[in-house]
Nucleic acid binder design. Structure first.
Lengths: 224, 224
DNA sequence: GAAAATTCGGGTAATTAGGGTC
DNA sequence: TCTGTCCTAATTACCCGAATTT
């Protein structure tokens, strides 16, 4: 019977010294030191003042240029199916916006397409393996968000209400990704990176929507 | 011999040998030994002189953290200090908003206070152990967000630009929490829950800001 | 009781931090 | 503005034989 203490440490993080980390990044140790001093790269500081960098942190920095290792498809489900499921969940929420009943049937159809496009683009953005793939995926989603913003403005949609809807979208997407990440056994760095990217994507859609909403300041309909 | 110390409580603490502990910290056993000799790291010493380290002690060193629950304070740093650091990082971003130079000195001072209040409230919201604590923490932050929205509206601030700033706040907060979670060894479910809560908090501030912005539709300024 | 693995302690070489400058 | 290179003081890593733990 083995003694119960000293359990093997399960998720041991690999720590790198400044030299190793800066070699990986291709910068000088002084630069990496400045980065951590500025809060750009997180590091564990020993009581003596020396820094230790988590290998996952460094890989994350590299990942912006090289392959991203946290993706939806790596989570086991195809992007298409995930998008479909998410859209099914979100469509009623979006449809309950107070200004939607004022939209024409054609506009409502467009809104449905836009919603699907946004969900699809968002997941594609999260799933992309490099910047180019991410941008290609989200571009139509951004256009769809702008379209939704213009239609909302046309019908005097309340911006706060629309934002809340988007926040629900964000919540659902993040919850969904988090659940998939847990199921897939993704480790904490990868999972949090995934969620951060999802956030970025949603933020970009929101900005596009708000800008479009403001730029197309409504047609004069139903003037009181 | 049986395990020397199971004092009554049994599942309380996991003890690590020097090798395991130093692996977790990314330093050599000799260094860890020197730290305990200097009183920097508390260790239990066997009658023969060997040291045993509590896993929680090691985690405290890593993120200044003992990752037991998903909260900022459990992540080791006091909310106040984390808020201060985050605000330091974000203040220049918020100050670069195009409409800020049009604000009066007094307003700018108020904006600074509001920014600090929002960061503090946000972290308190994430850190809260129950609904009541969360709500108490975020309420002043919501009021601060509304205040910022009113000031922005007064100076014809661009809503999209303000939103982008908030999205940067979200990004910084999420990055910060994610990094802390990784350092503290938080598992994926806890870490994702933490980030989801942070998102919720930011969303509520954004809604408050946008609503206030819309409700206080600007004064006629800049007679130029 | 005995053996293998680990830890202790110390002494020295290598690496790092930090500031200042280009 | 940012990065790479110097400099010195401080910290850390590697070496050893002896003692402890398993």
């Amino acid at each position: 019977m083995s003694t119960p203490r000293h359990h093997a440490v399960e998720d041991a993080e690999v720590w790198l010294g400044v030299q190793e980390a800066s070699d990986m990044l291709g910068v000088s140790p002084a630069t990496l030191r400045r980065w951590s001093a500025a809060g750009k790269v997180r590091a564990f500081t020993t009581p003596g003042g020396h820094r230790r960098y988590a290998e996952s942190t460094i890989r994350q920095l590299l990942g912006r240029a090289a392959g991203l290792d946290s993706s939806v498809s790596a989570l086991g489900e195809s992007v298409d199916r995930a998008a479909w499921a998410l859209h099914e969940q979100l469509a009623p929420v979006c449809g309950s916006l107070s200004w939607v009943p004022r939209a024409t049937p054609e506009e409502r159809q467009i809104l449905g397409l836009a919603g699907r496009s946004m969900v699809q683009g968002l997941l594609g953005y999260v799933d992309g393996r490099n910047d180019h793939e991410c941008e290609s995926a989200i571009r139509p989603a951004i256009e769809a968000a702008a379209m939704q913003g213009r239609i909302a403005a046309r019908h005097h949609g309340d911006l706060g209400e629309t934002l809340e809807t988007f926040h629900r979208v964000r919540g659902a997407l993040v919850d969904d990704l988090a659940a998939r990440a847990c199921l897939a056994g993704l480790d904490t760095p990868r999972a949090t990176r995934l969620l951060a990217r999802a956030n970025d994507g949603v933020d970009r859609l929101i900005v596009a929507l708000v800008d479009a909403h403001a730029a197309a300041p409504a047609a004069a309909v139903s003037p009181g």
